[in-house]
Design a binder for these strands. Structure first.
Lengths: 334, 334
DNA sequence: GTGAAAGCGCTAACAA
DNA sequence: TTGTTAGCGCTTTCAC
């Protein structure tokens, strides 16, 4: 239409090579007029090479991360047909070194993209910056590195989920009685998520029911036997609600079940098998689902769609707070 | 590798044309051995034509369907670059004829696929069967036609959401007092969803708190002013919880708000603006989100991925029951 | 500065 | 029953 060859049009559209100003303008105008949209299929056909994307998440000791892994597996087949291979790298959630070691391997591998759950902020930042340097696109999920601007961040709003948890306890627990915020020594205490959740929880109580007493307690026992400590707490205080800001609510739930303390309301996180069992038996009242599988799925899809189809990216996707009860949980566990 | 031409390989792989048994087996074996996977990108490049998919949903009078429409709009751009054009057809949710008329137009249009929310079962079945005849793939969302086997069904479990609603009222409402199942005359009474929800609600009450009294009431007023009837009900009975199985919970919420009946718990459906307002002000306690936008999005994505990428389909996708509270709702409404 | 041509992996039409 | 070839829309390379 512009009276020039297809090669010249290509040069104009991609601002590459030398083109005279006159033809450049002419081609641009025509492209505008006919609303030219490049055919992404043809484009990906010609740049048809195998791509690798590195997945960096904690290892599978924890059911939460197993679910994330499953989410990735679920979509990896779909991207295989576009010649994207997802290479998993695992680190230990209680060992910063293992994260760094995995990071080094990833950099050595020079992947075409990285999806990571950087629960260690400083180490995560280091990897992120290396990727930026090598202009490898990065998608973060679960945890975001403050200040970093990756291609996309996928996650949940921890602060808000803490507020929601407090509201649920407030609505269902006995009016009298203290709320307990429980932590267990086996967890990464002070992770950003945990702190945000706790802050949200307390914020709600302060605003909506300032007269409600609460205590933050860290239980510790080398063998993860917290029964005795719970007993002490319950003799000391009259407890009407418990908030566990991690996936360890089952510890509290098991004890409540054993002690037949059916009136105490319990809110926890994550649809792990231990939690689900107690949810169904009525000893956990609410679980907040952080949807690790969907987060991971979305992360992979986002990165791959960008790489393969050149799709534009929504830089920040927050999953809604998913409140799950005994009756709302899917009957068939998939 | 098999010593035959690319054309023969193509014939074997697609079971078309005549191929000798010997070569057929040889090609199959080699394909198996090298784990041959067709390149979907190349395939879609060669069959590169514009495709139309018809979208059939109720018109935009109702906010629920406006949200569904928005979900479609959100992903239509992404499929445009694959040359898929989504053509919307609307019908009136209170007029079966309008559904039939739209159906006729769709069939005339001969689209490459149909996405529909067939709230009228018989008329929906008719369209479905015509599509089957013309081998046009169909995806249904929101409502499924009993017995029909479309490419995919996207929806929520109404029965279960009714149970969940009952549980939420049971957990939060005063122990004494009657539960009210409210319907409004402006709705399509007896829609399958509505009946399932109600059945689920009652099932829960029977099982979990058989002593709880409940009444099913249909309010009717030509001007949608239900205040007087609500007043009568509340003087007749001591009500502690209300269940509205549709998006009309705001009618009840507004009245509760006006009458300062803050102790009465209210569960409704759908994040419409009127409902959200009352949720935030505390007069609706729980909303069950049926996610019309995501349902529609998923429906379009499923059909398009099948058409364009030849992707395999999960024939039935149930969205989880999404319980929303004042604190769990996204702070910024998008 | 610009044009011509090869080729990405596949399908479809035609030839043998 | 099998082989050959054009061409889908684009990028890239080489030649002028």
């Amino acid at each position: 239409m512009a009276g020039v060859s297809i090669g010249t049009v290509d040069r104009v559209l991609h601002n590459r090579g030398r083109v005279s100003e006159a033809t450049r303008i002419r081609v641009r105008e025509i492209a505008e007029k006919i609303n030219y949209k490049p055919n992404m299929i043809a484009r990906s056909l010609v740049t048809n090479r195998d791509r690798t994307i590195a997945l960096l998440i904690p290892d599978q000791k924890d059911e939460f991360w197993r679910q994330a892994r499953d989410g990735v597996k679920g979509v990896s087949g779909k991207w295989e047909q576009f010649r994207v291979i997802i290479e998993p790298f695992f680190y230990s959630a209680d060992n910063r070194n293992s994260f760094e070691k995995a990071s080094e391997e990833i950099i050595k591998r020079k992947p075409d993209g990285v999806v990571m759950a950087p629960i260690f902020l400083e180490e995560g930042r280091k990897l992120y910056e290396q990727c930026i340097e090598l202009s490898i696109p990065v998608v973060m999920f679960d945890t975001a590195i403050p200040g970093a601007k990756p291609l996309a961040i996928i996650g949940t709003d921890s602060f808000q989920s803490g507020m929601a948890a407090a509201q649920l306890l407030h609505m269902t627990a006995r009016k009298k009685g203290r709320f307990l915020v429980l932590h267990f020594d086996e967890e990464v205490i002070n992770s950003p998520h945990m702190l945000d959740k706790e802050r949200g929880f307390i914020e709600y109580l302060k605003k909506e029911c300032p007269r409600r007493k609460y205590s933050i307690v860290v239980l510790n026992n080398p063998d993860h036997q917290y029964h005795q400590q719970l007993e002490e707490i319950f003799t000391k205080w009259k407890i009407s609600g418990i908030y566990v800001s991690t996936s360890r609510a089952y510890h509290a739930g098991n004890w409540l079940s054993k002690e037949k303390k059916n009136k105490v309301k319990l809110v926890g996180y994550d649809l792990t098998s231990a939690n689900i069992k107690l949810l169904k038996s009525g000893h956990i009242d609410f679980l907040i689902n952080q949807n690790p599988n969907k987060q991971a799925e979305e992360s992979i899809n986002t990165l791959c769609a960008h790489l393969v189809h050149g799709e534009e990216i929504v830089p920040r996707k927050l999953f809604p707070i998913e409140i799950v009860t005994r009756m709302s949980i899917a009957i068939s566990n998939d």
